[in-house]
Design a protein around this nucleic acid. Sequence first.
RNA 1: GGGCGAAUAGCUCAGCGGUAGAGCGCCUGCCUUACAAGCAGGAUGUCGGGAGUUCAAUCCUCUCUUCGCCCACCA
Length: 887
Amino acid sequence: MNESLGKHYDAAAAYEKYYDAWEAAGCFKGKPQQPGPTFTMVIPPPNVTGSLHMGHALNNTLQDILARYHRMDGYNTVWIPGTDHASIAVHWVLEREFKKEGTNRFDLGRDEFLKRAWAFKEEAENNILTQLRALGVSCDWERKRFTMDEGLSRAVRECFVRLYEDGLIYRAQRLVNWDPVAQTTLSDLEVIHEEGADGELWSFAYPLADGSGEIVVATTRPETMLGDTAVAVHPDDDRYKSIIGKMIKHPITGREFPIVADAILVDPEFGTGAVKVTPAHDPNDFEVGVRHKLPMINLLNKDGTFNENGGPFVGLDRFEVRRAVKEKIESLGLDRGTEAHKMNIGRSERSGTVVEPMLSTQWFVKAKPLAAPALAAVENGFTKFVPTQWENTYYAWLRDIRDWCISRQLWWGHQVPAWYDDEENVYVGHSEADVRTKHALGDDIKLRQDPDILDTWFSSALWPFSTMGWPDKTPELARWYPTATLTTGFDIIFFWVARMMMMGQYLMGSVPFKDVYIHALIRDKNGDKMSKTKGNVVNPLEMIDKYGCDAFRFTLTAFAAQGRDMRWDENRAEGYSKFVNKIWQAFRFTMSHIGDVEPSELQKFPAAETDSMYNRWIRHKLREAILQYGTSIKEYRFNEAANSIYHFIWDELCDWYLELVKPALYGKAEHGEATKLGVQQTLYLVFHSLARALHPVMPFFTEELWAQLPATEGYIMNATMPKPEDFASEHEAAKEIDFLQSTIVAVRRVRAEFGVPVKENVEVLVRTDASSWETMASHSVALSNLAKATMKALDGGSVPEKSATEVVTDTELFLPLEGLIDFAAEKVRLEKDLKKLDKEINGLRKQLGNQKFLNRAPNEIVADKKSQLSDAEGRETRVKAAIERLS
RNA sequence: GGGCGAAUAGCUCAGCGGUAGAGCGCCUGCCUUACAAGCAGGAUGUCGGGAGUUCAAUCCUCUCUUCGCCCACCA
């Protein structure tokens, strides 16, 4: 026995032993020049602010399984890693630090801020990448990219310029989402709509300028009345027809503005049927403002305080103004009451503050023209979502897409490649020099670059090709684009997947990936989303520590059923760590019994004369497991892949095969020493195959097996996947062993129920046909070892009166257990069996008596049912006879 | 207001029209020289309710109930 085979597998030691060694040996390296079909993936780049969470763990484990599987299956495989600069998230982290230091980014200034940001990035990136390695991911680290690398920044500028020149990027004054805490715009996707918040609908009266009366309006945001430039009513509303066109005098600012008729905005049934219009702070009102050419009064400073348009409330925060306005109006006698009102509030995804719609000049991507090909690509099947249900989500968003605000008033990110002269003319280009050349601007003209940066997702959208060197024409792009599979969570289908689809087709002319595998969300045990604030976060690194990386990965894999969220259950991880141990123990056993064979001999397929029914059977089962495993992985049914192997190893290899071949290994088999070699060769074949098959799921563990297994060379990931063709189908062996198993189980059942001492041998009388008896006799050693039973043919003799009975298909087993059996109990037991049989028989008879069934069901189903029935009937007769004998 | 998903053993969940499964937990008996991180045996289910399609439904269709989630500019 190999000295280094410890009693237990040491997962942490295996990580130490292998991870860096794999990398150093270039195992993960993608080589574009290598032949073969390609399998390419780009990692969803984790934020540099992040630390490894369960989502990452699942996502990257599944990707690693795909990468390792395809690498061993003959594909030219590469998995490109990297990180995302996560603009607003980094700002958020740094701002908190600044606050502790009693400063802020504006006091520090842009240059100092960026220094700090880069320093932070270096440290944080290192952290997340180290954690990813602990998972065992086989990324090509030499190709690691960061979204703000020079190459990727160049890609961003190139993309921006092209879109601009094609008229797909424009600069305009629009109503945007403003985060007054982070002090930047946000895209629509970064605003989280909080449903059903308790709010109030407050009504107040606007006096008409001519003193002829008032008009009552309602609002959930009282402070916006300072920016009202109209009140709208429905043109057909008789209540207001006469006052359309009249002026209102603002009770606080004194401005005068009109009552307008607008059929689009106003629902005469709602409230008073009159709507206050604040074009600079409400999307609907903005449209009204455009339609009626109303002035648009911006009320807010960047930090959410009121600007000079706020009349008496200049400098106050928006929420203070809300209270102040209500008080003022009340004091003027214009308050018309409040009522409770469920409302939706838009909050900033990052800062959590209430987002203000605000009029502002920003850069936008014209989305519709880009969305059309992205939609068509999925409709036409060039890119497939797995599970397909996500295609609906994708369609819905793209069909209704609106322009994308891409400029942010932040500093960490890609600065907008646009320059302005003193007259505010805009020049877009790759650099200031480029702009000067292109537009023939003399040195006398001063240019300043747009201070804003781009939405982080703008650079992420280029990830599948910017990581491969675009816009240059690189060998990588030629060989590896488009990628095979993108694996990600549903929460970024819009943010990322859809945008990569748009940019991929726009810039590369083809989809960025063939498959999009959307994995489920891991929730906590109660089904709640894991979050730091709830304190229910499970740390994957802790799980790795506790159960070992291989068991943890296996757990995630076994959890990964398609299309459904999963609740994390640590019991499962514990269970699978036992599974790892189970394999280890079986392997130790195997190793202790194959050591005396020359490796060259071990590697041979068993010759006919040394082979056995047990070997044929286990190879048949292995073939089935591997077939299922490969298909499952290719179809992204990871849980099925895990289960097929689990079942094979535990329920077939360990529970039966190893037990069945022990006599042969000990030289006690019925066929003598001759069968030993065949068993050793089969054991070798089984472990040699299993290790390779399991490698994608359990990389470290299988490497350890590989290292111990004789006659293996190099690292296991350089070996190839076992194929079903490596083993023949052995249906006869399967049938025979099935019969043997049923017999053993039947004897064990009787033994257990009647408390026959474990070590006591029992004699079993068998009534059956000649060929079944012959089969049974050939397994006498197995029956003796596994059932502690000595089988004797009844041979026309009479059935012993005092015996327990079991029926296995057409074979009857009688166990004369004089003195042990409580015959009343045996009768009860048999009657229970009979009841079950009756139910089965009735069902089958009914079905087979149905002419329609006979006519319409497929022949093999009918034949199957018939044999089931005759089998059941046979057993029924025999069970009945047994009951008779006891009466 | 739209859209999507889920409901299966005590718990967490698989289940690809043809006699209901796994892990954990539970009961009984075992330290059998690979494994007590184990072995053998056992119990537990109107597959959420109702209707339909089908020879046949846990699976397909409709409907109801109960939970999730996503999208959406109603004052």
